[in-house]
Nucleic acid binder design. Structure first.
Length: 219
DNA sequence: GCGACAG
DNA sequence: ATCTTGTCGC
């Protein structure tokens, strides 16, 4: 594989990212996650799941899982080339589409401005938010211990996202613009959909996949 | 060269 | 991400 070529794709994708609000009303939020059968084998079986919740109740109103084979390895800053195919397929085949989609990973907080959440948003033409459990790059001050507190993630003197506390005294999340949304709105949505550390759409999608994986592995 | 390094 | 058990704190 030629990583230089893939870097060019990411740079081109970054130019097409829209960093402002385009939605006037948001009623549903979705989350897409991927899990793998094996962490060692390279071509390996994998599953992608989308869960859509109602912003009013925070309860799921739609969910779908697809299965496929993944052969691209995990390489830091190139995550999209491993997980995007599965994510795009589960989204395309879903009979219902959410107003906004949370993606497990970075949005524009990426060395070339195109993490998986932005990449997905641009390719699918959807509104997305990057919700990562760890930082990929940038510097920040620890946010206060109370839920709702946040500090800015800075890279090259620019704000590329926030470090957001979604639960008191629990490790914060790294939230960034994915596509067609403002950072302020992204923060508001992640907070509004978080009961536990991880926002409901992603937490539920992750839980469904973990249960399926254990079932398949016979445990 | 050394440390960092989404999932 | 996955590999893995119990354990401490709210």
């Amino acid at each position: 594989m030629d990583l230089t070529k893939l870097e060019e794709i990411q740079l081109d994708c970054a130019k097409r990212v829209i960093k402002i609000e385009v939605l006037k009303e948001i009623k549903t939020v979705g989350g897409i996650d991927v899990t793998f059968e094996s962490s060692k084998e390279n071509p390996t079986k994998a599953w992608a799941c989308i869960v859509i919740i109602s912003l009013d109740t925070l309860k799921p109103i739609y969910q779908k899982i697809i299965e496929d084979i993944v052969d691209f390895p995990y390489i830091p800053t190139f995550l999209a080339f491993r997980e995007l195919p599965l994510m795009k397929r589960v989204y395309t085949e879903a009979k219902s589409k959410p107003d906004v989609i949370f993606i497990d990973g970075q949005g524009i907080s990426h060395p070339r401005g195109c993490g998986i959440a932005s990449h997905f948003g641009v390719e699918v033409g959807a509104v997305t938010v990057g919700v990562a459990k760890k930082k990929l790059l940038g510097n920040y001050e620890p946010p206060k211990e109370t839920r709702g507190s946040y500090s800015y993630l800075i890279y090259n003197g620019e704000v590329i996202g926030v470090v957001l506390r979604t639960k008191d005294k629990v490790k914060p999340l790294f939230v960034s613009i994915g596509h067609k949304i403002s950072l302020e709105k992204a923060i508001e949505l992640v907070l509004r959909t978080s009961i536990y550390r991880i926002p409901e759409p992603l937490r539920l999608a992750h839980n469904l996949l973990q249960r399926l994986r254990k079932q398949v592995l016979g445990k």
